[in-house]
């Protein structure tokens, strides 16, 4: 390898490593904090590596009043959101991907605009409506606004996924004796499944991470982020650190599985190719 090329490559790796460290070090630090004994959190100067690995901080967090309950709520809300979003969004994504019909472009534009809209703010008027409907302070209520937030993404992602399944395959199945629905179930669905799973995970993460609407729409049935946010001022630092780390774990885990589909979500244009 020639000298300039070697230099260029070295510089590339140095740059990439620097960015990677910038991303990873804070995650690493919060992880360390969560396994530092609570009293050492306040030590001065605090050693980067704690004197001993301790589960006390994590245990304190999980045993704190309301945490396990809100964790359960968070998971339920995220699962409900996932179910609502896919049930409502996937058919629309399929329609946009498969058919050309009057109003198709208008619908797509509408979806793209709602994707950019600060939907979480709609929790404020929804709180008033939900009180009337009996949905205030319920998990379904939170899941509904989370669905409103995730829906544009779900439609865009599923459109991309179904566009990736050639129309010919379904038509072939139809000439071989399937009904339209049968062709979808036997051919399009199995081929779209990995993508749909990624869309589901993405939806889950949106709901799991959302805090503004969840806080506005609940009082007793808090989700985990809502619980942490509303108790933050009264909580010790180690509680906050453990909470921050705990909320991060599933996100990192899911990111690993949806990494191939990341560009469908925001890079809408890629999905349209």
């Amino acid at each position: 390898m020639s000298y300039p090329r070697l230099l260029r490559r070295t510089l590339l790796y140095i740059g990439a490593t620097a960015f990677a460290l910038w991303v990873l070090i804070p995650i690493f630090l919060i992880a360390i904090s969560s396994f530092t004994p609570p009293n050492e959190i306040y030590a001065w100067p605090k050693p980067i590596i704690p004197s001993r690995f301790s589960l006390d901080t994590m245990r304190f967090f999980l045993n704190s009043y309301g945490v396990l309950n809100s964790l359960r709520n968070s998971i339920l809300v995220a699962l409900l959101t996932l179910a609502f979003t896919l049930a409502v969004g996937a058919p629309a994504g399929y329609a946009v991907a498969r058919f050309s019909f009057r109003g198709r472009e208008a619908f797509r534009l509408g979806i793209l605009i709602t994707r950019m809209f600060p939907t979480a703010l709609l929790a404020v008027p929804l709180a008033v409506t939900f009180i009337k409907w009996g949905l205030y302070d319920t998990l379904i209520g939170v899941a509904l606004i989370h669905t409103a937030m995730a829906l544009p993404f779900a439609v865009i992602i599923t459109t991309g996924i179904f566009m990736g399944v050639p129309k010919d395959l379904e038509e072939a199945a139809m000439t071989l004796g399937c009904s339209r629905f049968g062709a979808f179930v036997r051919v399009a669905l199995p081929l779209a499944l990995p993508g749909l799973a990624a869309a589901a995970m993405f939806t889950f993460v949106i709901s799991w991470n959302e805090v503004f609407a969840a806080t506005i729409l609940t009082v007793n049935n808090r989700t985990l982020p809502a619980h942490i946010l509303t108790t933050i001022q009264a909580s010790p630092l180690y509680f906050r650190f453990a909470g921050g780390f705990f909320m991060t774990i599933p996100a990192l885990f899911f990111m690993f599985f949806i990494r191939r589909y990341l560009f469908h979500m925001w890079g809408g244009a890629t999905a349209e190719r």
Partner: peptide, 19 residues
């Protein structure tokens, strides 16, 4: 790696940098 924070909530990010 660069895309990792995409999955991290604003609340969690605030707490991470609080540490």
């Amino acid at each position: 790696l660069f895309a990792l924070p995409l999955g991290i909530s604003d609340l969690a990010a605030g707490l991470i940098w609080l540490s």
